[in-house]
C-alpha cells in the first residue's frame, strides 16, 4: 500500500486468480434461479415424470427407472456442460462481461478454469440428486464394484467433450437467447436418438448410425454399462458395451472440441 511500491509489485499467481474465478462462477450459477431450475432440476423432473408414467419391462429384471438412470444422467451432464456453457458464455460475450475481463490482467486460462469448476460442481450436484431420487423414489440399484470406476471416467470424458463443444458453440450465437434456441433443440434431438428417453434398440437403425457420430450416444452407452446388468449388453448395436470405443470417441470429441475452441473463441462481439 506504499506510494512507491506499485511499479514492481508482483502480479497475483495464476493459481490464486483461478480460485477467485471458480468462486465467481459458482456464485453466478447457483444464484441464478433460471439456470438452477433449467439445468439442475429439469433432469429431476424428467426422472420423476417419465419414471412415474412409463412402465416398461426390459427383461433381466430391469424396469424403466433403472434403464432411465443412465439416460437422465446423460441429459444432466449434457445440460451442465454443453447447454450451460453455450448459453452462458454467449450471454457473457454479448453483454460485455468477456470484453471487460479481457481488459484486465486476469490470465485468460483462469476464466476457463473457473468454467470447468462450475461444470464439475453442477455435474456432481445433478448426479447426486438424480441418484438420491432414483434410490429413494424408484428403488433403483446403484452401480457396484468396478462399475463406479467406469461411471467416473465416462462422466469425466463425456463432460469434458461436451464442455469444450459448448464453449465452441457459444461463439456461433449472437446472445444467450439465440444460443438457447439453437443448442437446446440440438441437445434434445441428440438425446432422443441416443437412447436417452427410450431403449436404444427402439431407435431406427439409420438414426442409430447418425447418433453414433456424436458424443451423446457414447456417453449414454457408457453409462448404460454402469446401470444395467451385463445381460442387456446384447441389446446394444454391437452386442457389447464397447467401452473401448466409448473412450476413443469421447476422447476424439475432446480433441475436436478443443481445436474448435482455440480457433473460434472470441472475447468480444464481431
Amino acid at each position: 500500500m506504499t506510494a512507491a511500491a506499485p511499479e514492481r509489485t508482483a502480479l497475483p499467481s495464476t493459481g490464486r486468480v483461478c480460485r477467485t474465478r471458480a468462486g465467481v462462477e459458482l456464485k453466478e450459477f447457483f444464484r441464478q434461479r433460471e439456470s438452477v431450475v433449467f439445468t439442475l432440476l429439469f433432469p429431476v423432473i424428467l426422472l420423476l415424470g417419465l419414471g412415474a408414467v412409463l412402465d416398461y419391462d426390459l427383461g433381466a429384471g430391469v424396469d424403466f427407472p433403472q434403464y432411465f438412470m443412465a439416460g437422465v444422467i446423460t441429459a444432466g451432464i449434457v445440460g451442465a456442460s454443453l447447454q450451460n456453457m453455450a448459453i452462458h458464455i454467449a450471454g457473457e460475450r454479448s453483454d460485455g462481461t468477456l470484453k471487460a475481463l479481457a481488459g484486465t490482467p486476469m490470465p485468460k486460462s483462469a476464466y476457463f478454469v473457473g468454467k470447468v469448476a462450475q461444470v464439475v460442481a453442477v455435474t456432481l450436484a445433478t448426479i447426486v440428486i438424480l441418484l438420491l431420487v432414483g434410490v429413494l423414489v424408484f428403488g433403483i440399484s446403484l452401480p457396484s464394484g468396478s462399475d463406479w470406476l467406469t461411471f467416473i471416467w465416462v462422466t469425466v470424458l463425456g463432460a469434458a467433450a461436451c464442455t469444450l463443444l459448448g464453449i465452441a458453440v457459444s461463439s456461433l450465437a449472437r446472445n444467450s437467447r439465440s444460443a438457447s434456441a439453437t443448442v437446446t433443440p440440438i441437445a434434445l434431438v441428440l438425446e432422443f436418438v441416443s437412447g436417452v428417453f427410450m431403449p436404444f434398440d427402439q431407435v431406427p437403425g439409420w438414426l442409430q448410425d447418425v447418433a453414433a457420430v456424436f458424443p451423446v450416444k457414447w456417453l449414454a452407452q457408457g453409462l448404460r454399462s454402469v446401470f444395467l446388468p451385463d445381460s442387456l449388453a446384447a441389446r446394444e448395436p454391437a452386442g457389447s458395451w464397447e467401452l473401448g470405443t466409448v473412450a476413443i470417441v469421447l476422447g476424439l470429441w475432446c480433441v475436436v472440441g478443443l481445436l474448435l475452441c482455440v480457433r473460434t473463441f472470441r472475447w468480444q462481439d464481431r
Partner: peptide
C-alpha cells in the same frame, strides 16, 4: 474479484 487480478 476484480481487485484480485491486479498486482497492487
Amino acid at each position: 474479484a476484480q481487485a484480485s487480478y491486479f498486482a497492487d
